[in-house]
């Protein structure tokens, strides 16, 4: 049954389309002379395609929240607690004593030091990250990308404005080639957040994430960050923080961000 000039690794690589064109042609020529083997190769190819098909829909399923949580960087506090609890009690006792001293020192010098991880700066830093996570979770959705579709735009804007307690403006990006898909309400770190999704003719999506910033947050210029393959421009305007996310190059995203900013500010 086996054909000497076609060892099994060559046949498998042929099934997977991993031979260079000349080699693949030579294999096809040998297979033409061995119909039994050619039928097996065809069956293997079909079987490979049916495996891919059978599991394809799983990629479009919404990801359970507990997995998104597990994929997110564990809180520093949690890992510190875990490390502490792994220490023998004598060490923990000594550390606790040092910490108590540290807190006393910290209380005295607190006015002289920049605010730490919980101040407005930290909240601003969390904005692009939260926006990127929301983009990553919802933009691949085929069936449920938004809660309220663009066809009910008035209702959408009224509803989200009410929930955020601010009058929201949905930028019109048609001139840049992007139509509004719709929007949804999301949990932000200090209250509700809104996400508007846009899509171009090829199905490429971008999202605008908006949330209320604490009153202490200073207005900022555009800030750019990369979260994996995703790029985010964020800024703060008045009491609202905005983040525009998409898999675009920096220039393209900046030009859309400028457009958004101009419409919101006016």
């Amino acid at each position: 049954m086996n054909v000497p000039e076609l060892p099994e690794e060559v046949l498998q690589a042929h099934v997977d389309g991993r031979l260079d064109p000349a080699h693949a042609e030579a294999v096809a020529a040998v297979l033409a002379a061995h119909p039994d083997l050619a039928a097996r190769v065809a069956a293997w190819r079909l079987q490979k395609a049916s495996i891919a098909d059978a599991y394809a829909s799983l990629v479009d399923e919404p990801v359970p929240a507990r997995l998104v949580q597990a994929a997110s960087r564990p809180a520093a506090a949690a890992s510190t607690a875990a490390r502490l609890s792994a220490l023998p009690w004598q060490t923990r006792f000594a550390l606790a004593a040092m910490l108590a001293g540290g807190i006393a020192i910290g209380w005295v010098v607190r006015g002289a030091l920049p605010t730490g991880g919980s101040g407005p700066e930290a909240a601003v830093a969390a904005l692009p990250r939260d926006a990127a996570i929301a983009h990553a979770v919802y933009s691949p959705e085929i069936r449920h990308p938004v809660e309220v579709a663009a066809s009910e735009q008035d209702h959408l804007v009224g509803w989200l404005s009410k929930r955020l307690g601010r009058k929201l403006v949905v930028p019109d990006l048609a001139a840049a080639g992007y139509e509004l898909v719709g929007g949804r309400l999301l949990p932000g770190n200090q209250g509700p957040a809104a996400q508007f999704m846009y899509q171009d003719a090829t199905g490429r999506r971008l999202t605008l994430y908006i949330r209320v910033e604490p009153s202490a947050a200073p207005a900022t210029a555009f800030r750019f960050s990369e979260q994996g393959t995703l790029r985010v421009f964020h800024w703060i305007d008045g009491s609202l923080g905005y983040a525009l996310s998409g898999e675009f190059d920096r220039e393209e995203l900046l030009s859309i961000a400028t457009r958004v900013h101009r419409q919101i500010a006016s």
Binding site: I51, Y55, L58, V59, D60, E61, V63, P64, R66, L67, V68, A71, S72, R73, R129, A132, I133, A136, V137, P140, Q227, G228, T229, L230
Partner: peptide, 29 residues
Amino acid sequence: MHEHDLIVLLPRLRRYARALAGDAGRADD
């Protein structure tokens, strides 16, 4: 390692896990 990179790979990790483990609950575990 960025968490975003992990999150974008989640659907593919789930797909492979489902094929490997068979059952949806065990796959997500």
